[in-house]
Design a binder for these strands. Structure first.
Lengths: 194, 194
DNA sequence: ATACACACGTGACGC
DNA sequence: TGCGTCACGTGTGTA
């Protein structure tokens, strides 16, 4: 710690520069020291959360932090898009299931790309059952070129025509069919088509 | 640019300090300058990718960068777990609806079912679960004092009598009954009793 | 010893 | 005016 103590009290002439008093200089030193210490600690904290850090240079830490941050942002973007796509599929599914129930009859020209696995996913809820509000339950099985469709739903009257329309839209012919009422509240529909 | 030119060639005695030659001092200055410039640029780059930055202090930039990086990592973690859960559900679902697709008859009546094949394959060679041994699938729903029993199984002839015996054992009377064959290999039995 | 990295004190600029 | 921030040159330690 050198204290040059250049107490230069300039006169009022040309290139004069006011010198601070020693106490202020000391304050300045202390403040700067504190600032540096804070910065160093931040660097340490940063290097702690950046994974796979070979060098602990400030430059390396900053560079790797930037790189990793960009990767993270890109990753978040991708993951969010994946989730969005997933939920989108789910929504499409629910929509497809709902169109059997609702009389809204929205435009359903999605018959090209939606495959049977979509139907399978449509009955996805939590593993525990117990939530009877998510009717109808739809289940699809495939064996050879036959398709078994089972629908458990409430007692809407128009659900059968919608189901048949949907089946017909996929150019399937029904080979077996059964509808069983359940306590005047629900019904279990089983269809085999090929 | 001051050149003190303190060429102090110390002797080998006590507190001697070797002084560099002027060119080396200059190199040192230049090198340090370059290092600082690089660091500043890194700070700028960092502040560019950290969103919502009010202050552009070095400390603030570092602090916000750390904060944001932690948030990103946590977000990635959550999103990945969500996706894992989603795909898990998907696999469980497909597994639950054990549709068995034989790769031979890919007659495409049932619209393109390639994704179904994929899912089935990926879920079938899972653990050593003998695929068709988990039949029959049994599902029971209870509504009021009625009971809906659905059995999906192979074409055993004795399963019906066993089912009826079981139902009779619980003093239930069958009010509705349906058995639907499925491709000469399986059958879907639906019973309502009360 | 060459090269790099760091912390320090210090002058300067802006609010 | 003072307080906070920055960049600079420099000394020192380490590989």
């Amino acid at each position: 710690m050198s204290q040059p103590s250049k107490t230069k009290q300039a006169v009022s002439s040309g290139g004069a520069k006011r010198k601070r008093q020693p106490s202020q200089v000391q304050d300045h030193i202390i403040a700067e020291r504190k600032r540096r210490e804070l910065l160093s600690q931040l660097f340490i904290s940063l290097s702690a959360i950046v994974p796979g850090l070979k060098k602990i240079d400030k430059t390396s830490v900053l560079g790797e932090a930037i790189k990793h941050m960009k990767e993270l942002q890109e990753k978040v973007k991708v993951l969010e898009s994946v989730i969005a796509k997933r939920t989108m599929e789910s929504v499409v599914l629910v929509k497809k299931s709902k169109l059997m129930v609702d009389e809204g009859s929205s435009d359903n020209n999605v018959s090209s790309s939606t495959t049977v696995d979509d139907y399978c996913r449509s009955s996805n809820n939590d593993d525990g059952d117990s939530s009877s509000d998510s009717l109808p339950e739809v289940e699809v099985k495939i064996l050879g070129n036959s398709l078994l469709l089972r629908v458990y739903c409430g007692q809407q009257k128009d659900i059968l025509v919608k189901l048949f329309a949907e089946i017909d839209k996929h150019h399937l012919s029904i080979t077996n069919f059964s509808v069983i009422p359940f306590e005047n509240l629900a019904q279990d529909i089983t269809i085999v088509a090929k």
